[in-house]
Design a protein around this nucleic acid. Structure first.
Length: 114
DNA sequence: AAGCTGACCTCGC
DNA sequence: GGCGAGGCCAGCT
C-alpha cells in the first residue's frame, strides 16, 4: 500500500497538525512517524511552510528539543512563546517547551482513509 | 529541465 | 559516546 499519492503525505501532515490539542506541542519526527515516514521529518517542516498560509497551529509544532525553530517564519520567537503560553504551555530556561509535560503524540487513527 | 534548498530526524562507524 | 552522512517531499532558480 505504498502506492499512495505523494501529496497524500503532505496532506497527512496538515491533518495531524490541525488535530494538535490546545496547550500541547508535538515534534516533526512524531508527525512524520505518524504519517508513516519518520525520515520525512524535514518534509513535515516544509509542509508547515505551506501550512503557515493556512489556519494550522504551526506554533504548536517544535523540534525534538522543544525549540521554536519556525520563529523565522513567525517573525519573532516571542510571538510563538506568547501563543503557546497563552494556551498554557510552559517554557524552560533554555526557551524550549516543556515537552515532558506538553509533549503530544499524534494519532494514526485517521490514517485509515478516515 | 536539472539542481539546490528547507522549520528535521535517524542510522552508521 | 561523538561525528558524519542519508533520507523524505515539494518549491524555487
Amino acid at each position: 500500500m505504498s502506492s499512495y499519492k505523494k501529496l497524500d503525505f503532505f496532506d497527512r501532515v496538515f491533518k495531524i497538525v490541525a488535530k494538535i490539542p490546545k496547550g500541547k506541542v508535538t515534534t516533526y519526527g512524531k508527525i512524520a512517524e505518524a504519517c508513516g515516514i519518520r525520515s520525512a521529518a524535514r518534509t513535515v517542516g516544509w509542509a508547515l511552510n505551506s501550512a503557515k498560509n493556512s489556519n494550522l497551529p504551526c506554533h504548536r509544532v517544535v523540534n525534538r528539543f522543544g525549540a521554536l525553530t519556525g520563529r523565522v517564519h513567525f517573525g519573532d520567537p516571542a510571538l510563538m512563546e506568547s501563543l503557546l503560553k497563552s494556551e498554557g504551555v510552559e517554557f524552560l530556561e533554555d526557551g524550549c517547551v516543556n515537552l515532558q509535560k506538553h509533549l503530544w503524540t499524534p494519532e494514526k487513527s485517521f490514517s485509515n482513509n478516515g
